[in-house]
């Protein structure tokens, strides 16, 4: 299997801030790979180095077989990047933006026109094609941004937090596009803060924390590292809380929040079991919430600290 992206011992610091502390990563051609981690883990820095925007301090990075430091032009010819911040020309229309990309990629007049029309259609921008970008919604700008990345049919596409800040409908649309690209054989490296997104789209996931990869594997492998979900119950007073703890026979009652958490695999059976036990002893819960494993849990399981405890780390 050939590697589309091969990273070995990659390091990068900004001043005294060590952002990437020895990353090794290998992405097979034609696969979707997710880099999962909280803000400040080093995801964007990694993508910037892979796309020749930043020079690494040390280590080796090869994209489509080309070294990012020694052969940046060959790397640039093979890649496309859609970042967190829209890289569109706000003074042009959507169509002109796409045409500019077609021109700069030297597609030729008729091929360029055809490609622009095709992408406007595919990204549902036909009606807005001739309107200035000032009239575009956030989702439309993001779609145009990605369409611009795809004009030249890059072999490898980097998507830096492609759905952050998008509404659910735009997010689903972005997922659909990523799947289509993957089906067409494009190699995709995406960064995300959401486990469900990585789970949904990627064949393999690397979890990045403090500039180090703390876990790597298929979504199923990663989830096995994480304890299952839990059911959280809240009660009106401490007496009821104690009665519930006795009825359920598990979980640590929390007197301050009047809450009790018990392990659950998220299945209906486990939920029914909890409710049956409470009913049997006549215990009334004020509220019930079901938690499935999220990035917080993955992080806690892998690193022993919370995502929140990591503010102030340079990105």
């Amino acid at each position: 299997m050939t590697s589309a992206i091969a990273i070995h011992a990659l390091r990068k610091s900004f001043g005294t801030d060590v952002v990437l502390d020895g990353i090794d990563l290998d992405v097979a051609a034609g696969t979707v790979y997710a880099l999962l981690g909280p803000n400040g883990a080093g995801k964007t820095t990694t993508v910037h180095i892979l796309s020749t925007l930043l020079a690494p301090d040390s280590g080796e990075v090869r994209i489509a077989g080309h070294d990012v430091v020694r052969e940046p032009a060959a790397v640039r010819a093979a890649i496309g990047l859609t970042g967190q911040f829209s890289a569109v020309d706000g003074l042009l229309t959507g169509e002109e933006n796409l045409q500019l990309m077609a021109d700069l990629r030297h597609l030729g007049r008729s091929e360029g026109r055809r490609r622009v029309a095709e992408l406007l259609e595919r990204f549902d921008l036909v009606d807005a094609a001739r309107k200035p970008l000032a009239t575009y919604s956030g989702g439309m700008r993001r779609r145009l941004d990605l369409a611009m990345t795809l004009v030249a049919r890059p072999q490898i596409v980097f998507l830096d937090e492609p759905t952050t800040g998008l509404d659910p409908r735009s997010r689903a649309e972005m997922w659909r596009v990523v799947r289509e690209l993957a089906a067409a054989g494009t190699t995709i490296l995406l960064t995300t803060q959401y486990l469900d997104e990585a789970d949904e789209l990627a064949g393999r996931i690397a979890v990045l924390d403090h500039g180090v990869i703390v876990a790597e594997g298929t979504p199923a492998e990663l989830k096995r590292l994480v304890p299952g979900g839990r059911i959280r119950l809240e009660f009106d007073d401490p007496t009821v809380l104690r009665a519930a703890a006795v009825a359920l026979g598990s979980g640590e009652p929390d007197d301050e929040t009047l809450a009790l958490e018990v392990a659950s695999d998220g299945s209906l059976a486990s939920l029914r079991d909890v409710m049956d036990r409470l009913d049997r002893d006549g215990v009334e819960a004020r509220s019930l919430t079901i938690h499935t494993p999220d990035l917080d849990d993955v992080f806690f399981a892998l690193t022993g600290h919370d995502v929140d405890a990591r503010e102030g780390v340079a990105s």
Partner: peptide, 17 residues
């Protein structure tokens, strides 16, 4: 300055221009 504030220059820099 406008170009640099727009992020389009970042895109140009990832292209073989």
């Amino acid at each position: 300055a406008q170009d640099l504030s727009e992020g389009i220059i970042t895109r140009f820099r990832t292209m073989n221009i």
